[in-house]
Nucleic acid binder design. Structure first.
Length: 860
RNA sequence: GGGCGGUUAGCUCAGUGGUAGAGCGCUUGCCUUACAAGCAAGAGGCCAGAGGUUCGAAACCUCUACCGCCCA
């Protein structure tokens, strides 16, 4: 084994796991079941750091559950990402000067499939590289025939139940993507903008009414002015008519409750075609709807002389003309939230059009109930409230997209009789009623529609397959809180409606990965981290370490830093070298039998191992993965490597060798969910030809719990640290061995003297009945170690050392005294706490009296 | 406007009512034959502020300030 750990074998193991179907699951009624579906990543995408965290966590759980005897099934797959994928292919076609319309729908879709077949495996390879133990034989793509079938079935089912409908409503339109998008796909950003105050003259030309707007270009589509019915200023104008500046359209002043009297002048313009609130006002007052902005973001013919202008150019032009013609009262700076397309950041245009909707308003109560009743447990539970609030304010979901790549809406209209129906069949040519020709809807479904069926469609739904019955509902879902609404909630809607069952029993929502200063990563900030670069530079284990060790129980965001991943790399090197040492030492030993004799030091590390096992299991069971990892790491590095391995070098016995090896093996098992590669590699170096993930999780060994040994060792460590500290302070060369005299019960120390000699570089420890002249001293409890040094002992230095220790002790004791002299404390605190405090004070007091004695010997 | 997080060492963060921990960074000394990707020893904190509950608060409650996120 090399002195430095080389992670290049990671490639070997990830390939082996896949080739040997290590993570393949089959139905097995004799084992407890654990099933989970991967949040399917975008097939056009590559792994980003957020995926890496999400996948590392899932993999850790999968390995942990598998080692605990579960029949684990983790289903992998990718998402067809309608708009994103279409964009990518459109862009590449455009390089050849081809528009998708030029080649038509079918040819275009062929191109997309070609593209997918060529590049769509990238992210799957990356998942493999990260070490993920997914069931590759169950790999799914959301456009697979089985998923397409599921989508059609789900659609028809919901359509027939009246839970999907087509409607003429205001939706969010992205002019760049050329499609409707859902409310969730709009992100609002605060922007510095303006409020333009525009004069609308009354039709009799006697005065005008001033309205404030952030969007002057939409005035071309104004069909009313609205004021609040209770606004005294405007009582007299309600019912009157004004003329829209620049175009002269005659529009009424209406009274509507929705108008905020405190906004602007208290009077607002109403453009039903281009604003959701105005749309509602328009419906209430039966106003005309004039669309002045087209689907391409340019002004329509209805905009008169502005027709053809981009909406933002039109804004400038309109403002310009208003100013010229003296319709502009004033301009104020104004900060407000502007909706952008989540995908391309284009400013979203509210637009009225015919779209398909899922009636979430009808489905929300059940989705709410299953969480309320605990049928689904959301962890951390603070998300429950967020989820419930969202359900309380739910709006129907616009699912139609004006693109080609995706699941085409399975609704047909008979060209003869006009019958409209949804079908589950892949192709429908004739009307089931009259046999006439039918025409299918052109639009495709929101990608999230198929994603919402993911946890059951991957098991063959709607067929009631054996897999579906066995693996569904899934046990756990792990994903980031950022897709709670996008995905998690929608799966609940779909499953509770279509299956009358929850899609998963538990959801763990983790935080997002931020940069090292807690900033969101973004390309424009230039602070993104490519996980594959990190893997290349540091190893997948190190990356997994950096991500998971940064997690805390509350599901906080994880700050990613290179220093953390570097530490992960150091940890793997530490594991490597400690294993290298141990394996070398035990190489020729037959350690098959458990030893009959164990030293205190052996019992100490075995007992600490038991404590660690307990904590780690508790952490896993409470989804505290970061703490689990930190706990094992600290046990392995601080207890096992820094103390036990070092101590094992002193007069090793069979028990020592056995313990060295035992703790190594058990530690490897506990580390395996987090660092699968190095642990597997070392496991094989031990000589095992098994996969570590198929080994059994370390079982508790109550007989190894030995608090006395742990307590003894803590004192021994204090002695060693004390002597080391003394050496360091006095600049004693590491190579120089020193003599030590113990004032105290040598017998009680005898077992540990060899360790003290080795670790504190002590030549000899002998006993002394009384204080030693000309020596430094280390007080450990009631005992004193004297260290006479050749040459002159600096009495003043020794005194000041001891005085500092004395005042530290006195300070600590005074805190205890304050507490123990307080009658309220003595009466009200639990007895065992009082006892413990007394004991602790007593121990400090004993050390103090030794110090005082020592100081008086020095004449201080 | 409504809601949710956060504020602890220079930086990034853990912390379960009983006078605070880690990693990185810093100082000092060590290539001590597992590991310099390491070892040892150290320095460094009125736990954001103010009230309250409690025998006792970094932790529980209330308010304030600031930072961040989500929703409208």
């Amino acid at each position: 084994m090399d002195a430095q750990y080389d992670p290049s074998h990671e490639l070997y193991w990830s390939k082996k796991w896949k080739e040997d179907h290590v993570f393949h699951s089959e139905i097995d009624e004799n084992k407890p079941r654990f099933s989970m579906v991967i949040p399917p990543p975008n097939v056009t995408g590559s792994l980003h750091i957020g995926h890496a965290l999400d996948l590392s966590l899932q993999d850790a759980v999968v390995r942990y559950k598998k080692m605990n005897g579960f029949n684990v099934c983790w289903v992998p797959g990718t998402d067809h990402a309608g708009i994103a994928t279409q964009n990518v292919v459109e862009r590449s076609l455009l390089k050849e000067g081809i528009k998708r319309q030029d080649i038509g729908r079918e040819a275009f879709l062929d191109k997309v499939w070609e593209w997918k077949d060529k590049y769509g495996n990238k992210i799957l390879d990356q998942i493999t590289r990260l070490g993920c133990g997914v069931d590759w034989e169950r790999l799914r793509f959301t456009m697979d025939p089985v998923c397409a079938r599921a989508v059609r079935h789900a659609f028809k089912e919901l359509f027939d139940q009246g839970l999907i409908y087509k409607g003429h409503y205001m939706i969010n339109w992205c002019p760049r993507c050329g499609t409707a998008i859902s409310d969730l796909e709009v992100t609002y950003e605060e922007e510095d903008a303006h409020l333009w105050y525009i004069r609308y003259p009354f039709e009799d030309q006697k005065g005008f009414i001033v309205v404030a707007t952030t969007r002057p270009e939409t005035m071309l589509g104004d069909t009313a002015i609205a004021v609040n019915p209770n606004d005294e200023h405007y009582q007299s104008v309600i019912g009157k008519f004004v003329l829209v500046p620049l175009i002269g359209r005659r529009i009424p002043v209406v009274a509507d409750e929705s108008v905020d009297p405190d906004f602007g002048t208290g009077a607002v313009k109403v453009t039903p075609a281009h604003d959701p609130t105005d749309f509602a006002v328009g419906q209430r007052h039966d106003l005309e709807v004039i669309q002045v902005i087209g689907l391409d973001g340019r002004m329509t013919d209805a905009a008169g002389k502005y027709a053809g202008l981009d909406r933002f150019d039109a804004r400038e032009a309109v403002v310009n003309d208003l100013e010229k013609q003296d319709y502009l009262e004033k301009i104020e700076p104004y900060r407000h939230a502007v909706g952008h397309c989540q995908r391309c950041n284009t400013v979203v245009e509210p637009m009225i059009s015919d779209q398909w909707f899922v009636k979430l308003t009808a489905m929300a109560p059940e989705a709410k109930r299953v969480v309320e009743d605990g049928e689904i447990q959301i962890v951390p539970d603070r998300w429950v409230k967020v989820y419930q609030d969202w359900m309380d304010n739910i709006r129907d979901w616009c699912i139609s997209r004006q693109i080609w790549w995706g699941h085409r809406i399975p609704v047909y209209t008979c060209q003869e009789c006009g019958y409209v129906f949804a079908s589950e069949e892949e192709h429908v040519d004739t009307c089931p009623k009259c046999g006439g020709p039918v025409k299918q809807e052109e639009d495709v479904l929101d990608t999230w529609f198929s994603s919402s069926l993911w946890p059951f469609e991957v098991f063959g739904w709607p067929e009631q397959t054996a897999d579906l019955k066995y693996y569904f509902p899934t046990t756990l879902l792990i994903t980031g809180y950022d897709i709670l609404f996008f995905w998690v909630a929608r799966m609940v809607f779909m499953s509770t409606t279509l299956n009358k069952q929850v899609p998963f029993k538990q959801v763990f929502l983790h935080g997002l990965v931020l940069d090292e200063h807690g900033q969101k990563m973004s390309k424009s900030k230039g602070n993104t981290v490519d996980p594959m670069d990190m893997i290349d530079e540091y190893s997948a284990d190190a990356l997994r370490y950096a991500l998971i060790s940064g997690m805390s129980l509350g599901g906080q965001d994880v700050n990613f830093s290179e220093s953390r991943i570097e530490h992960g790399k150091n940890l793997t090197n530490k594991i490597w070298n400690s294993a290298r040492y141990v394996l070398n030492v035990v190489a020729d030993k037959d350690l098959s039998k458990e030893p009959e004799q164990l030293s205190s030091v052996d019992r100490y590390i075995l007992s600490r191992l038991e404590e660690t096992k307990n904590v780690v299991v508790q952490c896993f069971d409470s989804y505290d993965f970061g703490a689990a990892l930190r706990e094992i790491e600290s046990f392995y590095w601080a207890d096992y490597c820094d103390w036990y391995i070092e101590m094992s070098k002193v007069e090793p016995t069979y028990g020592t060798y056995w313990t060295l090896r035992h703790v190594l093996e058990e530690s490897l098992k506990m580390l395996h969910p987090f660092l699968p590669f190095i642990t597997q590699e070392v496991w094989s170096r031990i000589g095992f030809d098994s996969y570590l993930v198929n080994e059994t999780w370390p079982a508790p060994r109550k007989d190894f719990v030995d608090s006395v040994a742990v307590e003894r060792l803590s004192v021994v460590k204090d002695a060693i640290r004390g002597i080391r500290n003394l050496r360091a302070e006095l600049n004693v060369k590491p190579s120089q061995r020193i003599r030590v005299l113990l004032q105290g019960d040598l017998d009680s120390w005898s077992e540990f003297i060899p360790y003290i000699k080795f670790l504190a570089r002590v030549e000899e420890v002998s006993q002394t009945a009384s204080a030693v002249e000309n020596a430094y001293s280390v007080v450990v409890g009631t005992d004193v170690f004297y260290v006479p040094l050749q040459g002159i002992v600096d009495i003043e230095k020794e005194k000041s050392r001891l005085l500092k220790q004395k005042s530290d002790l006195e300070n600590r004791i005074s805190v205890y005294d304050k507490r123990l002299q307080n009658n309220d404390f003595l009466n009200k605190a639990p007895k065992e706490v009082v006892e413990k405090q007394k004991e602790e004070r007593q121990a400090l007091e004993e050390s103090l009296s030794q110090l005082v004695k020592r100081l008086s010997e020095l004449g201080g």
